[in-house]
């Protein structure tokens, strides 16, 4: 996951590498993702999240849709 100044810069970077667009979102949202994902990482009781838990966490900060799906579609 990389950082960019703007959507234009994302497009230029992707075009130069002939890559398709993934998904982009404001760094403020990335910060909320980082907080939710990593705040308890030093807790000895930490364990890896299940796909269901991870999807719920993504959804809780507005990261929804197929891009963020970890479970196979039914």
């Amino acid at each position: 996951m990389l950082a960019f100044r703007s959507e234009e810069h994302v497009d230029w970077w992707l075009a130069a590498r002939r890559l398709g667009r993934g998904t982009s979102f404001p760094l403020e949202q990335a910060w909320r993702l980082a907080q939710a994902w990593y705040h308890d990482r030093l807790d000895p009781s930490w364990r890896r999240k299940t796909p269901e838990e991870a999807e719920a966490l993504f959804g809780g900060i507005g990261l929804t849709g197929d891009f963020w799906r970890l479970r196979p579609s039914l």
């Binding site: 990389l2 950082a3 960019f4 992707l14 982009s24 891009f67 970890l70």
Partner: peptide, 22 residues
């Protein structure tokens, strides 16, 4: 990008994921 007191400061840019989560 600065984090101060639990809040993001001057985070005007974007994050881009190239690959879907799965």
């Amino acid at each position: 990008v600065r984090v101060r007191n639990g809040e993001l400061r001057n985070g005007d840019g974007l994050a881009h994921f190239a690959v879907p989560a799965a």
